[in-house]
C-alpha cells in the first residue's frame, strides 16, 4: 500500500509551478508514475503531495515539421515515441533507446519527461536525445527558459530545475538526411533490465562514404550523469570509419573521458573495459546502418 498523500492535478503550467514551489520536498511531480509509484510501494519513501502533470496541454503530444524538427511533450509515453511514424523513420536511434525502457506495460505509462527528470545515469531515452542535440523547454513562475539537455543534469538524480520549475518539452532539429545512429545497451539479460552501461552514437560521413564529418557519442552509467564525450568525438572527425584500427583507438580515448563508479551491479574497471570494446563496436554499428540504408 502506498502511504497517504494529497493528490493534485494542475490544469495549467502556472498552477503546476506554484504547487511545486509551495510543497517543496514534501511534494513530487508525477507523470506516468513508473518510477515514483514503484518507489512509494517500498514503504521507505513518502510524499505528502503528489502533483500529477499529465493533464497540462503543453506537456502533451508529439509535434514534427521539416523546418522545426521534433518536439516531444514531457508527458509523451515511450510507447507513443516508439510507434510514431516520423520518429521510427527519421529518429531511429531514439526508437532504439526508448524501446529498451522497462517493458511494454512500463512504456505505456512511463514518459520521456520522467525519464529525463528522474535523472538516472542509466536512462535509456537520454543518450539518444543527447546525440540528437536536444534542448529542454523549462517553465517556471517567472517564465520560460531553454536549456540544452547536455547541461540539464548536475549529478545523480539532480537537475538544473529550480524549485518552481517543470520540464515542459524536449525538442531537437531534424538529423541530417543521411546519418548513422545506434544505441547499445549492455545488461545481464534482455528483458526488464537497467543498463549496466549504454552507448548512443550519431555520425555523418563525407561523399566518399567513409570519412567521418560529424560524430556524437553519449554514455550512460559511465559518469554521475549521462554525458557526451567531446574529445573522443573530436578524434573521430576526418577518420576513415572503415579503418578498424582507427575506430578501435576511439575506445582507448573514451575511457579517459568516462568516470564510471563501482556499484553492486558492476565495478568501475569492468565498466571501463566494456567502454573500450563497445564504443568502437557501436560506432561500427552506426556506420553500418548508414551504409546499408
Amino acid at each position: 500500500m502506498i502511504a497517504k498523500f494529497d493528490y493534485h492535478v494542475p490544469a495549467t503550467l502556472k498552477e503546476a509551478c506554484e504547487m511545486k514551489q509551495e510543497y517543496g520536498s514534501s511534494g513530487v511531480i508525477v507523470a506516468g508514475g513508473s518510477d515514483v509509484y514503484a518507489k512509494l510501494h517500498d514503504g521507505n519513501h513518502r510524499y505528502d503531495h503528489v502533483i500529477d502533470i499529465k493533464k497540462i496541454p503543453e506537456m502533451k503530444g508529439i509535434e514534427w515539421s521539416e523546418q522545426e524538427g521534433l518536439s516531444l511533450g514531457a508527458a509523451v509515453t515511450h510507447h507513443e515515441i516508439e510507434r510514431h511514424p516520423v520518429i521510427t523513420e527519421r529518429y531511429q536511434v531514439l526508437v532504439q533507446g526508448v524501446r529498451t525502457v522497462g517493458s511494454l506495460q512500463v512504456r505505456n505509462r512511463g514518459t520521456i519527461g520522467g525519464n529525463i527528470c528522474t535523472a538516472a545515469p542509466s536512462a535509456d531515452g537520454v543518450g539518444p536525445l543527447l546525440v540528437l542535440n536536444s534542448e529542454c523547454v523549462i517553465h517556471g513562475i517567472g517564465g520560460e527558459r531553454i536549456v540544452p539537455l547536455a547541461e540539464f543534469f548536475t549529478g545523480p538524480k539532480r537537475t538544473v530545475l529550480r524549485s518552481d520549475e517543470v520540464l515542459v518539452r524536449v525538442r531537437m532539429k531534424n538529423p541530417a538526411s543521411r546519418y548513422g545512429g545506434a544505441y547499445f545497451k549492455y545488461g545481464r539479460r534482455n528483458a526488464m533490465e537497467i543498463a549496466l552501461l549504454n552507448i548512443s552514437v550519431y555520425l555523418e560521413v563525407d561523399d566518399d562514404n567513409k570519412t567521418c564529418t560529424e560524430m556524437r557519442i553519449a554514455l550512460g552509467t559511465s559518469a554521475p550523469t549521462p554525458i557526451r564525450v567531446h574529445k573522443t568525438e573530436q578524434y573521430f572527425i576526418g577518420k576513415d570509419l572503415t579503418d578498424n584500427e582507427a575506430v578501435a583507438k576511439g575506445g582507448d580515448l573514451v575511457i579517459e573521458e568516462a568516470s564510471p563508479r563501482s556499484s553492486w551491479r558492476a565495478n568501475s574497471n569492468f565498466r571501463l573495459t566494456l567502454l573500450r570494446q563497445l564504443v568502437p563496436r557501436t560506432v561500427k554499428t552506426a556506420y553500418k546502418s548508414l551504409i546499408e540504408e
Partner: peptide, 23 residues
C-alpha cells in the same frame, strides 16, 4: 508490486499497463 513482473497487467483503453503502478 513494483512493475517488474506483469502479473497485474490489465488493459486501460486497450493498452496493457501494470495496474500496481497506476492510481
Amino acid at each position: 508490486n513494483e512493475g517488474e513482473c506483469g502479473a497485474c497487467t490489465v488493459l486501460v483503453d486497450g493498452k496493457p499497463v501494470n495496474s500496481c503502478l497506476m492510481l
